[in-house]
Computed example of a mutant assay.
Amino acid sequence: MSEVPFARLSRRHLMAGLGAVFAAASTPAAWAQSAWPDKPIRLYVGYPAGGGTDYVARMIAAKLSQELGQQVLVMNMPGATGAIALERVAHSPPDGYSLIVISAADTILPALRAKLPFDMRHDLALVAPAVTGALALVVNPALPVKNVRELVALAQARPGALNYGSPGVGNSQHLAGEFFNRLAKVKIVHVPFKGGAEAINATVAGDIQVAFASLAPALPLVEAGKLRMLGVTTRSRSAAAPGTPTIAEAGVAGYDRATWFGIAAPAGTPREIVAKLNAAIARGMQGADTREMLLKQGLETMSQSPEQFAAFVQEELSQNAAIVQEMGIKAE
């Protein structure tokens, strides 16, 4: 089609052309995506400042601020085991300005609480994982076991006689222990504490024999001879403890439990914004300084596409629901 000379444009041509321009410019999705981000982004955390989730959130926020050229504000909204913040973001406008740090613990919550004011499978857009890490299977040194196979053998010989501790009911450490019971076909009794430090201290003192603990606080106690580490819970060995075998390779086939943290947005957030966030998180978390800081916490970077992360979270939700139902775990 030949170009219409400017001098010959009719009023009809002119108005039609201007109408198309203004229509495109006034489309909210098109405008939001082209301008995003043009104001600060809020990154919600469902737990108090100073904890593990908050630590990771502030690291991610700093990296996103650098990558996106816009301030990312950490908003602590504790309560209801993270559910208050999850509800807030799930019901926020899907414009890329409300995000939330989700973790392995959040994929346990729906299995424990039947009536949540949101649905993790449908009300959130999974953006990107950022950090992953192993838990440590540790025992009191007085326990006569040197490896996972010996622990399983002892637990099978003395069902119900051994105890393991965790920071309460329905957390990642609790399910790590119940998954161990399930696959190893043993019964090590769960003892809930008020926090992870209390569970580790009780293991050191010999009040309980076993714990599934975060690597960062466990490693110094292992090095000091106050705890013995038998394995790590992840599929692959941890960079923070490369000499320690995984529980799977040490004798409990199929065992794989990890701690992890990632970012989610409200469902319906434009794919272009999700992709931009995913790329920014991946770039920001790859620096040598970031890797070094994470390693000191027993953590490593984790990178997946939004589609891969969504599939990963769906699998976590399904596995946790099966463990909670089979083991009869009830919320406190």
Rank of each mutant, 00 (worst) to 15 (best):
S172C: 05
R12G: 09
A111S: 15
A241W: 00
A30M: 05
A239I: 06
P270F: 05
V56Q: 13
M293T: 14
P144Y: 05
V210C: 04
S303D: 15
K63Q: 15
F180M: 04
D54P: 04
V152N: 10
T290D: 13
K330R: 15
H122D: 04
A80E: 13
A134S: 15
Y164H: 13
P306K: 08
L126V: 13
A265Q: 07
Q286K: 14
T107M: 13
G82R: 09
G170W: 08
A250V: 10
E272W: 01
A331P: 15
T259K: 02
F118W: 06
E315A: 15
V169M: 12
G268V: 08
I84M: 05
S26C: 13
P48N: 13
V324D: 00
A32I: 09
A250C: 09
S318D: 14
R271N: 12
I102T: 14
V210Y: 01
A224L: 00
M59Q: 15
K115M: 05
D289R: 12
M285F: 07
A90S: 11
V169S: 09
L68F: 02
K296S: 10
V232T: 14
G69E: 09
N147V: 06
A280R: 03
P144Q: 10
G168R: 10
L135E: 12
I281D: 10
L221D: 03
G69F: 08
L18Y: 06
N201R: 15
A16V: 10
N140R: 03
L162E: 06
D119T: 07
V4Y: 01
A250N: 11
G165W: 04
T27S: 11
V56A: 10
I323R: 04
A104G: 15
Y55C: 03
L219H: 01
L221M: 12
V101A: 01
A114T: 14
I281W: 00
M302N: 04
A197Y: 04
A83V: 12
G133T: 01
I188D: 01
L295N: 14
Q70M: 13
M75W: 03
T259E: 09
M285G: 07
V56N: 13
A197F: 04
A218I: 12
V139C: 06
